[in-house]
Amino acid sequence: MDESWALAQMTRIEVVIGGEDVPLITELLSEVGATGFTVVSNVSGLGHSGYHQGRLLFNDRNALSLITVVLPAERVRPLLDGLRSLLAHRSGVLLVSDTWVSRPEYFQ
């Protein structure tokens, strides 16, 4: 990453999980002090339990949701601990990657 871009490094965590579990995930994010997140409901895609169409018109709870959050690196471990223990019981996807943001103060 070119330093002249003046971007700050953060960690991006993406979780694909059943809509019913979104309130729990947001609780975990709040616990580790996340200042914001994005939820996309009714997402589609292929996973080990088959293809999810993402077209349930009147049921957000039983469709899959994608949650994206960006955190400073030091808050990631506690969140991962909670997410790992959740995914030990329930199906879902957890992706962790580096990312860069232009206004790091929004994510502290």
């Binding site: 729990l24 609780e27 975990l28 616990e31 030091e74 471990r77 601990d81 909670g82 223990s85 959740l86």
Partner: peptide
């Protein structure tokens, strides 16, 4: 971190 991790694991256990 350990305290926060204990809390996040607890939240999942409560759920």
């Amino acid at each position: 971190d350990e305290l926060l991790a204990a809390r996040t694991r607890l939240l999942v256990q409560v759920d």
